[in-house]
Design a protein around this nucleic acid. Structure first.
Lengths: 128, 128, 128, 128
DNA sequence: GTGGTCTAGACCACG
DNA sequence: GTGGTCTAGACCACC
């Protein structure tokens, strides 16, 4: 699988997993009905504890992105009811933009960067 | 001052202060050489522990955004020397965009939202 | 048969079968002496592993709701002898009511909902 | 505090804690803004592991019933946005009622029991 | 002091 | 085989 963790990253390990899976879903690389690798396999691949991965999967489940069939693995859910509050989405955007401005980027540069990132995020999904 | 804290926010208090000051600088509301209110005053205004504010100021100082002029309190630094790593800036952007995609927003909607936020962030700063 | 399973349901598959049969008995749709469909047939109909159905039937048998007549399959038992502990019944009731209260429902609304559900549960059973 | 766990109970320990806190909130015994006992204290009182309680508190937080101020404890949230899906509430009700019917209770007895439980659930809240 | 994260390792439930 | 729960014990972040 295409998940990575970085011990330098400030986010907790389990959150990195959550974000990684979210990114894979957002890009279309993981689609509805597809199975996620097992907790044990991810734990082995990344060299982290079983429980840590289990926590990540549980959070994904709680957010409705995946559902678990107990002895049978974890699969990507159909995404109905994912009505995220507008404000909830805007807060991280605002924060990221603030940092870019502080980094000296002009508005034009920022918009260009946004377009580039969007393209990258979609590209990995392939034949979508 | 125009700083606020929200106990419902998931970020720690000190981080909210840091982000708030960053936003004020990014918008131009706080410019080079301008003084920040004293730790004591902010703590009093917000009803927060002195230590919490001190931690926030220390982090701003560590990031090179402000410096302490002895006897004169904390002032906003010049922007030189703050070369933030490109990757460091891109990570939160990517994360914010991922959430927007998962929230069902199209690329066009996202770019529009980015422009709107940029405008809002600048507006507060006035003549800049 | 009128049993269904839902892979999105949080309950394990075998429990869904158990609950389904219980509901059929409670509504009168299945009465004393009537036969249940064979394990093999249910498994085929629902596209579920044989073992899973067998586990469900075993639990129903352990609870005294059905018994096995050799050569004749599984049949619904008479109700005698199934003295369920009062406390055992009250626990799930209390839990369900707690959730309704937390959901903002008033006592009157709850009682009304209870009556409606009772009616629905009986209706399916016909002449009873 | 008035939380108990029962090793005979089929629910996992952490779920019993969650349900217990929910019941306390539903009854009004725990009101908005009131603090929950610390993870360590509950763990000590009940003789279970720290992590188990932490998992329970995290779930309560995820459901929006409490919010956590990192170094400062856990408090009951104001309850806006607790729009639970009607179906989500009805499922446990239906299941509980089914069991009561199977236990031989008549509809009248059941409604009476419901009223009694509702009264009990509210009574513990006192001056509400 | 508070809660959060992580590890190691055990045992259970499900399919 | 899958995921779920629990324990014991460690270390970190926040206030």
């Amino acid at each position: 699988m295409f998940l990575t963790v970085d011990s330098e990253d400030k986010r907790p390990l389990y959150q990195q997993i959550v974000d990684g899976v979210k990114a894979l879903i957002a890009s279309g690389e993981l689609r509805e009905g597809m199975g996620l690798p097992s907790v044990r396999q991810v734990a082995g691949d990344l060299g982290v504890n079983l429980n840590t991965i289990a926590v990540a999967y549980r959070q994904l489940q709680a957010e409705g992105l995946v559902h678990v069939r107990h002895g049978a693995g974890t699969v990507v859910s159909s995404r109905h009811g994912r009505e995220v509050e507008e404000e909830e989405l805007r807060k991280p955007l605002r924060s990221a933009l603030t940092q870019l401005i502080l980094g000296g980027r002009s508005d034009r540069e920022i918009v260009t960067a946004v377009r580039r990132e969007l393209k990258l995020l979609h590209e990995r999904g392939g034949s979508r």
